[in-house]
């Protein structure tokens, strides 16, 4: 099973981000992690790791925001130096283009995870499992 994040289009203007978080709060949806990628032309894409991505996407769309579910692969980060580099190298070798990647700390405050947004999550998962890199299951991701 492939996990999903919610990607939302938004303008870089005061109050726009709050409009989105207000919708999620009203529906009692939890955001686990969030990154904002901005373009130079005054807009950006907000990536949300939510506990119920399908529902989050649905309520945001209904509230008029362009929102989409995107496949992600989530891996546990270890403390060993160079692990991130090694992982990204694996993907680059396979010719897989990483759209976005962001890290967050788990609820236990001890381990960090890396969320990778790629076009073909299934292939990434396969490459990682062949290389012995542990990926989180969908349940683990949503219950972070």
């Amino acid at each position: 099973m492939i996990a999903h994040q919610v990607s939302v289009f938004l303008e870089n203007k005061p109050g726009r981000l709050e409009k989105i978080t207000a919708v999620l709060k009203e529906q009692q949806l939890n955001i686990r992690a969030m990154t904002l990628s901005t373009s130079t032309a005054g807009w950006g894409i907000l990536n949300l790791l939510a506990d119920q991505p399908e529902r989050a996407c649905q309520v945001l769309t209904a509230a008029g925001h362009p929102a989409a579910l995107r496949e992600i692969v989530v891996v546990k980060m270890t403390d060993a130096p160079g692990t991130l580099h090694d992982m990204l190298l694996l993907l680059a070798k396979a010719g897989l283009n990483v759209q976005n990647a962001y890290g967050t700390v788990l609820g236990d405050q001890r381990s960090a995870i890396l969320v990778i947004d790629v076009e073909d999550a299934e292939s990434v998962q396969q490459i990682f499992s062949e290389a012995g890199v542990e990926t989180l299951s969908t349940e683990q991701v949503y219950r972070i």
């Binding site: 807009w43 769309t61 925001h65 362009p66 989409a68 076009e119």
Partner: peptide
Amino acid sequence: VQKEWFTGNMEALENLS
């Protein structure tokens, strides 16, 4: 941006522009 066509892909939107 049309809701129906939004995929969350940044590069695609930049190319579109």
